[in-house]
Amino acid sequence: MTNKTLLNVSDLRMQFGGLVAVNGVNLRVEEGQIVSIIGPNGAGKTTVFNCLSGFYTPTSGVVEFMGEEIQKLPDFKISLKGMVRTFQHVRLFNEMTVVENLLVAQHRHSNTNLLSGLFNTPAYKKSEERAMHRARYWLDKVGLTDVANREAGNLSYGQQRRLEIARCMVTEPKLLLLDEPAAGLNPKETKDLDNLIVSLKEDYHVSVLLIEHDMNLVMGISDNIYVINQGTPLASGTPEEIKGNPDVIKAYLGEV
């Protein structure tokens, strides 16, 4: 495993009026790692994602992605740099077909020159073919080839979750932020998801930052875990360390 740091977050703070949703969070993701953020409901996990991906501008703190400070960049630029996220509540283009969802996501790789598109130049054709090829590849990978021409909104929940991940993958990201990808999945789908995430890391060298409530999944695949409680960091370490940490157990039991 290489030891190059992909994402380094220090002293992240996000305040909404009087509410401090995130308070002094530090994170580090090395290349090729799967890192998880866990914590009770309302702990501020999604807010951390929103800060990292540029949807919120953090009140203070530094977010370094591949050695570059990005906390002030607009969301789409962060995505272009190779940090791409999914959403806790799936956000697909519901009225577009499954393939189209994947084609749209490749906007950054597409030949967007109007004239070459209108005249269907060879370069344009090639770019479109490549996009279609990549879409087909990922549809196959996540098992959605059969429903490729269906409207995304008509898919089952599990399929929608997988499509959302595929849609991130066609952008060829370096770091994938997954917000509760297993929520609402049945045990078999969760197992598939587990395999998929591991495969993304092993076969595609994508690092993953994961928010998840499913402890089996988290403990099974994470290299490192951060625990947040009420916006403040509570603990961090390997799955074994976290399992045995009395503070973590208390925070979770106190919640339930």
Binding site: S79, R85, F93, M96
Partner: peptide, 16 residues
């Protein structure tokens, strides 16, 4: 079309 359907998703995919 994508922008009409979900602007937030578009932004997350790097579309300006």
């Amino acid at each position: 079309e994508a922008l009409r359907e979900d602007e937030i998703a578009c932004r997350s995919l790097g579309m300006n």
